[in-house]
Design a protein around this nucleic acid. Structure first.
Lengths: 136, 136
DNA sequence: AGTGCTGGTCTCTTTTTGAGACTTATATAA
DNA sequence: TTATATAAGTCTCAAAAAGAGACCAGCACT
């Protein structure tokens, strides 16, 4: 219990103290988390955790993502090592995206968070409704 | 094992099939996840999981957040029910932010993800370096 | 010859974020 | 007394990011 608090403190205040001239903005945990804390990353991870998908399949699976952001998010996930991109020499060429070992490893804890969201979206919606009613 | 795959499938394809005219954009899991998948939410949750903080303390703890985004992110976290805001009648009045029960509940799985990031940021950095070297 | 499929890129517009001045009331310092 | 600091924001303007949609090349099918 206390160990959790200590480990948290280390990530913020003690991190700042330990890293001589280092800014907390350079914190490696932030660096990693911010790569997956954006609108589309977790959704695409969720899709690719199920099975590999092609570019067009992902676009149809997530109809409200723009082609531009699908390209860019997949590129970023590939760069961070979560996603593998493979081009098949069909006519026209098709591209398949799949999770790497690192991607599957990261999806473990991410999946826990997704499950929490599934279980608790009722509570979150209720909180929003109450909050919006309060200042009305 | 298979149950994980099935539960994933249900969130994407089967969700779409089950929710008659519903769009996958309305998916409640997405709704909740997108509330915490932004640049500052997880960082502030991390800080407040350690202990309650006042507005100015948070600003000093995270020096690269703008006052504007700190206000807005705390407001959104409060609206979603993760954070409690309390005003103390000091002169000038001070405001303390703390996690609610729902916030602490959500921080459980979030903390798992943060720990993964701490353990694996080396691998992510290495992947980035390799990727950037490849197309150079 | 025209149409559609592939996986993108390019441009333009709208939205979001960042930087920084400004606020109101009180306390402290010069 | 006048100046300065502190609290928690808000306001405005500039910059960055995201969304919408046209456009591209090469090949298959009609």
């Amino acid at each position: 219990m206390d160990s959790k608090v200590v480990s948290l403190r280390s990530k913020l205040e003690i991190y700042k103290a330990n890293s001589g001239g280092g800014n907390i903005a350079d914190c490696p945990v932030r660096d990693v988390i911010q790569g997956i804390s954006n609108k589309w990353s977790s959704l695409l991870m969720m899709a690719l955790a199920e099975k590999p998908y092609r570019f067009g399949e992902l676009r149809r699976l997530v109809p409200d993502i723009s082609q531009r952001m699908l390209t860019q998010t997949l590129h970023d996930l590939q760069r961070d090592g979560y996603v593998h991109r493979e081009v098949f020499p069909t006519k026209p060429p098709s591209v398949e995206y799949s999770l790497t070992d690192l991607g599957r490893s990261m999806f473990g804890p991410l999946h826990q968070l997704l499950q929490w969201a599934e279980l608790n979206h009722g509570a979150v919606r209720a909180a929003r409704t109450a909050f919006d009613a309060a200042d009305a």
